[in-house]
Design a protein around this nucleic acid. Structure first.
Length: 409
RNA sequence: GCCUGGUUAGUCUAGUUUGGUUAGGAUAAUAGGUUGUGGCCCUGUUGACACGGAUUCAAAUUCCGUACCAGGCCCCA
């Protein structure tokens, strides 16, 4: 019994679970396509060097990493972006830029499962490659936001925090920060630690403490104005904030993201209640393709895992019930010939259609349909057939009507 | 890698304080009954103490180890 369980941090999907998973994936897919993004995919398994190249050998401890029989070091992909870089270098020359691509890969990370964090998960990725304009970043943010909206999430549920790494780097110079990585770490921790701890951290790391403290206490519009007047270049950030849906966006200097490969604008989305981890995160990474040996290529994108999103949707009661639109054909008496004819007709019309296969009485057939979330039953029975009709019953409303069989041929 | 708390049928749960007869219930599943029409009702069937060890006359219950789950730390793509 024990060893029948799924491997640690992985999930079995029963039909009712998979239905929810597909609900999410289908929304991701359709909103991407709506905005002109094209779907692609890459192998689940890759040579490990693709991932260590940027993140160092230490990353191996967080990968499902092993040697194949030919002594090649391989791993299950922990993320998609390096593969995208590979694609751009290998195939990019023949492709019209900019690329607007998305994918919904299964990814794997060797780590301790926690709330919203698993060892195997789906991660929606969308990127724009080869577009210099800041409008690409605006487009990416608009896609990310409208995708969340397609689930029924609204601006009072979600906040997207935006920042600029270029700006933070100019802080480092201007504020007199000596330990840059400790400064980044402090910013990254801001939401987790108390205001006092953050304040103490600032005091330790930043020479111009008073200026820094003031800036970190400002939010949003006033912050941009203030930064502008202090001579920081906030034009890119300003454009993004102005062109994206302002109800979601908030400039937040503490958003830095762990990855080194981000170059300027970075962003993360959270539920406003602060109960969950980041829903999506991303930014501009203009050096990644060149770091992998390609030409310098502007790029921007985001990733959104299924685990946190699932938690958020569940919390907001936005996951649909397990229902399907198919029809069930119930049979009474010796009517299989007519029933199968009706079935074929419906299938050819593109109506998904299940049919009774056993000797069960009508009552049990209704139970069968009910248990599968079917809400339309066509009853084809001997009595009805004498009058050349069938009975169509809607299980949700409980209403039923007689329909001429000739309508189905 | 570390810390805390859990684990009783498919699911939820009583029982663990104080070891003691056949581990009780609900729900689901399944078969049937009833009604030419689902959710109600009635009957039958199936089904559990996570795994291993220790203590004991006796362990679901106490102790140790392992696995897994949940939450957290570290890390975060």
């Amino acid at each position: 019994m024990t060893n029948l369980q799924p491997y640690i941090g992985t999930r079995d999907f029963l039909p009712s679970d998979w239905d929810k998973e597909l609900f999410i994936a289908n929304k991701w897919r359709s909103s991407s396509k709506m905005m002109g993004f094209e779907e692609y995919d890459a192998p689940t398994i890759e040579e490990v060097s693709l991932f260590t190249r940027k993140s160092g050998e230490e990353i191996k401890s967080q990968l499902f990493y092993f040697k194949d029989r030919g002594d090649r070091e391989v791993c299950l992909r922990p993320e998609l972006t390096p593969q995208l870089a590979r694609f751009v270098i290998m195939y990019g020359k023949g492709l019209k830029k900019p690329l607007k691509w998305f994918s919904i890969p299964r990814c794997f990370r060797y780590e301790r499962p926690q709330k919203g964090r698993l060892r195997e998960f789906f991660q929606y990725n969308a990127d724009i490659i080869g577009e210099v304009s800041v409008l690409a970043t605006v487009e990416i943010l608009n896609l990310a936001i409208s995708t969340l909206e397609s689930f029924g999430l609204k601006s009072n549920d979600i906040v997207v925090r935006v920042n600029s790494r270029v700006l933070i780097d100019s802080f480092v110079k201007r504020f007199g920060v000596e330990d840059k990585s400790a400064f980044y770490l402090l910013l990254d921790k801001k939401l987790k630690i108390t205001p006092k701890e953050f304040d103490d951290g600032l005091r330790n790391l930043v020479k111009e403490y008073d200026l820094a403290k003031r800036l970190f206490s400002l939010t949003d519009k006033e912050l941009i104005v203030e930064l502008d007047s202090l001579g920081f270049d906030v034009s890119r950030l300003k454009t993004v904030v102005e062109l994206c849906n302002p109800e979601y966006l908030e400039v937040d200097l503490s958003i830095v993201r762990g990855l080194d490969y981000y170059t300027d604008i970075v962003f993360e989305a959270y539920d406003r209640g602060g109960k969950f981890r980041a829903i999506f995160g991303g930014g501009e990474y203009n050096n990644l393709v060149s770091d992998f040996g390609g030409e310098k290529t502007p790029a921007v994108g985001f990733a959104e895992g299924d685990a946190v999103l699932f938690e958020v949707l569940k919390d907001k009661k936005l996951l649909p019930d397990y229902l399907n639109n198919s029809v069930f054909i119930a049979t009474v008496g010796n009517v299989m010939t007519e029933a199968l004819k009706l079935r074929n007709f419906l299938l050819k019309k593109g109506v998904s259609c299940d049919i009774n296969m056993s000797e069960r009485n009508l009552s049990k057939q209704f139970e069968y349909a009910e248990n599968r979330g079917i809400h339309k039953v066509y009853i084809i029975g001997e009595k009805d057939l004498e009058k050349d009709t069938i009975t169509v019953k809607d299980l949700v409303s409980g209403k039923e009507e007689k329909v001429k069989l000739s309508k189905f041929s």
